[in-house]
Computed example of a mutant assay.
Amino acid sequence: MPTENTAIMMGIITREATERVARVAFDLARSRRKKVTIVHKANVLKLTTGLFRTVCREVAQDYPDVTVDDFHIDAMTVHLVRRAQDFDVIVTENMFGDILSDLAGEISGSLGTAPSINASADRAMAQASHGSAPDIAGRNAANPVAMILSGAMLFERLAARHEDPAAAKLAKIIEAGVAEAIASGTSTRDLGGSASTTEFTAAVVKAIEAGAGQR
């Protein structure tokens, strides 16, 4: 703040970091629906997010089997609400990604269902997209889906990094347990149910144990 009435924010986009996150996005797309959407604001932030879009497009050339499109961040919020089913992997910079991830979580039914993982080249940390949710802390009311699935994402990350099929299998078991618990009719209040945090977690554990008997 050069004066008490003026605040300046600097945005830094590097080719190295952009290329790394772009390759993660395209590698992920190959295991999914083979589609990547680049989100930017290159019409206004021409140098910073313009570089981001350019580098992502350059990386895309190494993935000819993946379909690529791009949108400005403001337009993307509209498209995501209107036709979320048309998108799969979205790659963008940090602030835009923070906004879109919360929007995508709510579109899926509740922000409480949105897992996340923060990963560098050699470190990873899993956490729920919604953060600590202090407004319901200590009330046994939080939806644990996001946190449970964040753990599954961490196992997926470890599986890919260490070529460990056991970790990949464990991630699938956790995901299946969550899906089965919800399908059986158990859900927390944000999803229209009445289960507490511990009750839903117990339902997931039960589903996993039941599935273990079939494997």
Rank of each mutant, 00 (worst) to 15 (best):
R20E: 11
H162A: 01
G185T: 11
S110Q: 08
R15L: 07
V204Q: 11
G151H: 08
I38K: 01
R189C: 08
V68S: 04
S184N: 10
I13G: 12
A7L: 12
S101M: 08
M147G: 14
G138M: 12
T92W: 10
R83S: 15
G105E: 00
T48Q: 07
P115T: 03
I99M: 08
D86H: 05
F155T: 00
M153A: 06
N143I: 08
I73L: 07
G185A: 12
A210R: 02
D88W: 03
A121F: 10
M147F: 08
D69S: 09
V91A: 01
D98C: 08
I8F: 07
P144H: 09
H162T: 00
L170T: 03
G185C: 10
A176D: 13
S150E: 13
T198S: 15
I173G: 01
D74F: 00
M76K: 02
V55R: 04
E4Y: 11
A42R: 13
I8W: 06
G112R: 11
S194E: 15
V204G: 02
M76E: 02
L149Q: 13
D164P: 01
P115K: 04
R23G: 01
S110L: 05
R157D: 07
A114F: 00
T77G: 05
P144A: 11
L191T: 13
D62Y: 04
T198K: 09
N140D: 15
S108K: 04
D27F: 01
K34G: 01
L100I: 05
T201Y: 04
G177R: 03
I99Y: 08
D27Q: 02
R23S: 02
A128Y: 08
R30V: 00
